[in-house]
Design a protein around this nucleic acid. Structure first.
Lengths: 340, 340
DNA sequence: TTGTACGCGTTATCAA
DNA sequence: TTGATAACGCGTACAA
């Protein structure tokens, strides 16, 4: 059996309360007594029982997630993962509210953040493009004492406590490496996304360009085409490129909108000669991998994302350290054969 | 605040003990009372506080890990991950003993398993090749009432409760897909491992052959070369192949021994024209990726492996269900650009 | 068949 | 500066 605070108290010849004061670095204990207790702790190899501590503290974490709502499969799976995580151990002693905001409207997320009642909340996870207004809203929440984490898309210039998601520059670099390796003959690469407003798309494009520039001189990357969340526009842009650019060898899809993209490429009759790489595992991209329509999908485990955000938020609420190794979200490469 | 057993008791008009009996499906309660309690549970949306339950129960899990010991970086990192997991929340209310056995000696692991005292233990995780003797030893442990999980390399014919690790057939298939994509010109592929005794190597080879046969007819895969954990032998075999086979385009290394392998290929002067794919991220393979000496590494997250094994063992001890989504170990593809 | 009372390891409140 | 003592939510002897 592991030693408890009782054992420490006995060993140090003090009361439980004093042990507690020392363990939690509370004031009102003499230097000498502190030393005695700490020696006892070291001698017996005491480690606090986190479960019992939480139970006694009666700590309850009131958390909120602000997610975009749109024609976006990824967010749907993320929400599902979040609810599943809540249903299990991870969300013990916590209540989680999920708020969705229209993705197209940049002001909606700000309104949603402003609508949050800071006194009824301990922490917030936010997935949104970084705008000055969002930065202000985040700053206000921080001032009210809330823990704030950026989710999936970082808010590097806002006072968030942490970013939970992948390194999107590295993700873009990975996509470029795959494209270059899968299309050694070289040619043109189309890059598409719904919007470059999001930090993640911006970073991915940056990384993609870095690697193509240094390692794959035979690849020439076209300017980013934005669909602004309009499927018709995505389809038109992709179709146009496939038909008018004979030297096209690859397509890198940085955001959502893979359904209209694939439809256009299929229609052009050139899909089987193109290396198509996209992001996030959804029913659409999964099917495309199986059918050999997409060569690879770069993804982040939504379950991990959800659980990590919850753990990190709780740690931030307590100003406690996080277990770094467990919270680093991996850039996963999914091919037809390692589909989960 | 979440409802507690007290709230349920009040709502149903019974005592705490009765609520407990219903919740834990213990006998001695009238049908009608059971129904009343269950209604109250449903009405208030009660969910048990697992931490408090374990605290009250005073449950303590005595676990052991049996790992091979050899010139194997992967096992070292796994052991480190295990110790790190123990040091954090995952191993709360559990003691973990790690036993190592010489990897070369197939009887050593059996001796180690026999040396385990089943009465001082609740569960065991085993990483070992499957032999009839190992099967017998596992059967004996199960008969004694222990929870047993196979780790990294499955023991499909032993009565283990569960396998914690990747699907190695799929891992082999993934390696083949990468090889075929990275070497579209085709040619010969050398496959090496330390030993085909291990189930994991066997499965990987199987998967590799499946995909090369159906999808990459231009690839011809050579018979598996075994090094029997002898670095000199590995180096000799690889050097010989590189020098005598002009049509060689790739090497698939299914086990450990990547140091002598790479040394041989370097010496042959043909490393930069070969697609080399190996398993497990170690200092050696990490460096090889950065230097562009290896094209890809297929790996499993040792941290995840360790935490998953601990969670699964505990669940098995309690005959409790596991949260499947969290325990599925992914087949990770690591390239130079998505190195963690 | 049902209820009472205590303990698990920690924190927190009050009094000394 | 210290110490008793009562919670926290649940499990479990033991009594009714």
């Amino acid at each position: 059996m592991r030693p408890t605070v009782h054992d420490i108290a006995k060993e140090a010849g003090v009361s439980l309360a004093t042990v507690d004061r020392v363990l939690n670095a509370r004031p009102g204990v003499r230097e000498k007594t502190i030393a005695r207790v700490q020696e006892a702790v070291a001698r017996l190899g005491y480690v606090r029982d986190a479960a019992a501590a939480n139970l006694a503290r009666g700590r309850f974490y009131r958390l909120a997630f602000v997610l975009p709502e749109g024609p976006n499969q990824f967010v749907e799976t993320l929400r599902a993962a979040l609810l599943e995580a809540c249903a299990t151990q991870v969300a013990d002693r916590a209540s989680v509210k999920v708020v969705t905001t229209p993705a197209q409207d940049p002001h909606a997320v700000v309104r949603a953040l402003r609508a949050l009642n800071p006194r009824r909340l301990d922490g917030v996870a936010i997935m949104a493009p970084e705008t000055p207004q969002v930065r202000d809203a985040v700053a206000r929440l921080k001032e009210e004492g809330l823990a704030v984490v950026a989710l999936v898309s970082d808010l590097p210039n806002a006072p968030r406590d942490r970013f939970v998601g992948i390194d999107n520059v590295a993700a873009g670099r990975t996509a470029a490496l795959l494209t270059g390796r899968f299309a050694p003959q070289g040619g043109e690469v189309l890059v598409v996304t719904n919007s470059l407003r999001s930090r993640d798309s911006l970073d991915r494009r940056l990384g993609f360009d870095q690697v193509t520039a240094t390692d794959f001189p035979k690849l020439s990357v076209l300017p980013t085409a934005e669909s602004y969340d309009d499927p018709a526009r995505m389809e038109a842009v992709a179709f146009e490129a496939a038909m008018s650019r004979p030297k096209l060898v690859g397509v890198y899809s940085m955001g959502s909108g893979n359904t209209p993209l694939l439809r256009a490429l299929r229609r052009s009759g050139r899909l089987d000669e193109l290396v198509v790489i996209g992001h996030e595992l959804t029913p659409v991209t999964r099917r495309a991998l199986i059918e050999n329509e997409m060569a690879a999908v770069i993804s982040q485990d939504v379950g991990h994302l959800a659980r990590s955000a919850l753990r990190v938020l709780r740690a931030a609420c307590d100003a406690a350290p996080v277990f770094e190794a467990q919270e680093r979200i991996r850039i996963e490469i999914v091919l037809r054969e390692n589909l989960p």
